[in-house]
């Protein structure tokens, strides 16, 4: 468990920190302030989006700073978090589940423009099979599509990586939400709700 010090560049600043730290910890360790772009610090909030280039590599990757350990020679740039324009829809407006597929393209018209370039797959920091998920949703296979987005943290990088400005993460979330809204009907829950409604349960203090 020997601590090795490494030097890197974050937002243009030279930073020296132990290699046992992630990018945010290293930046703080070197005395630089960082507030926006910091969130849960465990990879589920999607706030700390960074562009990273490693030494001897021409490739720039998109990652989450709290999930990426600092390395010798690494160059890092924090990305500001822009809240993209949303596709608006209300689940309550779907009168029944037969209509969902027909309305999907009204809500997400860009989906039919997908060029299958794989940009979204490349930038996803959670290694989600994004393009495939969008394709499944376009075929109306919402439950299957939603399953691919279980680990999605809504960092919006896939949208940044899409030349057609599809919001794949929002498509994934849509697929998950309609699945729950129309298809989760647990009998144990419904029985209990009924019993409570009939007044079968009361609490004695």
């Amino acid at each position: 468990m020997v601590k090795k010090m490494v030097s890197a560049k974050i937002n243009g600043h030279a930073v020296t920190a132990p290699d046992s730290m992630n990018i945010i910890q290293a930046y703080w360790h070197a005395g630089f302030p960082r507030i926006s772009g910091v969130g849960c610090l465990e990879g589920v909030c999607g706030s700390c989006r960074v562009m990273v280039r490693r030494v001897d590599s021409g490739k720039v990757t998109a990652e989450l700073a709290c999930q990426t350990m600092i390395e010798e020679g690494m160059q890092v740039q924090f990305l500001s978090f822009q809240t993209p324009k949303q596709h608006t829809y209300r689940l309550a407006d779907f009168k029944n589940s037969w209509d969902v597929q027909s309305q999907f393209f009204d809500i997400f018209p860009e989906v039919s423009h997908c060029r299958h370039c794989g940009g979204c797959d490349v930038v996803c920091p959670k290694d989600i099979d994004v393009e495939n998920g969008v394709g499944l949703a376009a075929m109306g296979r919402f439950r299957e599509a939603g399953e691919l987005f279980v680990e999605c943290v809504m960092c919006n990088l896939c949208k940044s990586g899409c030349p057609e400005q599809i919001a794949p993460n929002q498509v994934g979330l849509f697929a998950r939400r309609v699945t729950a809204y129309f298809h989760i009907r647990p009998s144990n829950l419904i029985n209990r709700l009924e019993a409570i409604r009939r007044g079968e349960f009361r609490i004695t203090r």
């Binding site: 689940l91 979330l173 998950r176 939400r177 729950a180 809204y181 647990p186 009998s187 829950l189």
Partner: peptide, 19 residues
């Protein structure tokens, strides 16, 4: 739990759809 499902939240269910 019912309200959350109606917001579109998923839960783990068994093969019969019970929570």
């Amino acid at each position: 739990v019912r309200w959350l499902i109606q917001q579109g939240m998923q839960f783990e269910v068994n093969k019969y759809g019970d929570l």
